[in-house]
């Protein structure tokens, strides 16, 4: 640790000032715009926004989808992380690499694949018609289901990684020990694994939830204008209607939720230590 703190500050300030002025300041101005209607401070922007049924639908849909994706990824994540953690070292590394890999690939590319799979002439519809389950293609693309599948594929790796890293800290023989003591698998999960991996679940859950809530690409490609979510709605409000008040309101909602989730995370981490 060096003593010359002025020198340290001189090294750290450029980054902080850069972010503060070019990043946080414009965002702050954008957010404050939502509180100004016709040049006056007012909450009318929020009230107007909240009174429109479309906005309500989009808000609740975003929450619902984000929550569903988080819960589904938790269920799959636990099963998958538990299997991976029990592999031997070499295989574990390989599988882990394959799970991480999609995170490095363009989300546009990742989402685009689902058009091929879920589209009218996609694999799923081919299979449905081929099996004689339906005569005409079923609409899957541009439904909440499509957005749900896309988001799940996009964010599941984050949940699995979080759970694996918390399971790595699990004491070695704790599961065997609780089995020997007569616990059923369900009891092992609820009484042993869940409490011990709570942190990973919270971290993964927050990442998946906020990621899904603030996603743009997936709802844009797989939901279109039929299944708007908060970010696609924001884009539409600005591009179609030049409505910056609504944009500011949505921005505020997104930021409050993202920061709220982050603060919650820090709190939980703090309580634990």
């Amino acid at each position: 640790m060096f003593q010359n703190n002025r020198e340290g500050l001189a090294l750290a300030l450029p980054a902080a000032v850069f972010t503060a002025i070019l990043f946080l300041l414009p965002i702050g101005m954008l957010l404050s715009e939502a509180f100004q209607v016709d040049g006056h401070w007012s909450l009318r922007g929020y009230l107007d926004f909240a009174s429109k049924p479309l906005n309500q639908t989009v808000f609740w849909r975003s929450l619902k989808l984000a929550g569903l994706v988080a819960m589904t990824s938790a269920v799959i994540g636990y099963a998958c992380a538990f299997c991976i953690i029990n592999l031997d070292g070499k295989n574990r590394g390989r599988i882990f690499g394959l799970i991480v890999l999609p995170l490095m690939i363009s989300p546009v590319a990742r989402t685009y694949a689902w058009i091929v799979i879920l589209g009218r002439t996609g694999i799923v519809n081919d299979a449905i018609i081929g099996l004689g389950l339906s005569d005409t293609p079923i609409r899957i693309l541009f439904t909440e289901t499509a957005v749900f599948i896309g988001l799940l594929q996009l964010f599941l790796p984050l949940m699995i990684i979080s759970l694996i890293s918390s399971m790595e800290n699990l004491p070695k023989d704790v599961i065997a020990a609780s089995r020997v003591l007569g616990a059923s698998w369900l009891q092992v999960f609820t009484k042993v694994i869940l409490p011990l991996t709570k942190d990973g679940l919270v971290l993964g859950g927050t990442l998946v939830f906020t990621g899904s809530l603030t996603a743009y690409i997936t709802p844009a490609i797989l939901g279109g204008s039929k299944v708007l979510m908060l970010e696609t709605l924001l884009y539409q409000r600005v591009n179609v209607a030049n409505d910056f008040v609504s944009a500011g309101v949505i921005a505020t909602i997104l930021i409050v939720m993202s920061f709220g989730a982050n603060i919650l995370l820090k709190r939980i981490a703090a309580i634990r230590s």
């Binding site: 946080l24 965002i27 603030t214 924001l234 993202s258 982050n262």
Partner: peptide
């Protein structure tokens, strides 16, 4: 916290804010 903020702020807001004020 300031330096880490860009990770947390949803990207679409960043783009809009820079467009409008820069």
């Amino acid at each position: 916290t300031i330096v880490a903020a860009p990770i947390i702020v949803p990207g679409i807001i960043v783009g809009l804010a820079l467009l409008r004020y820069l």
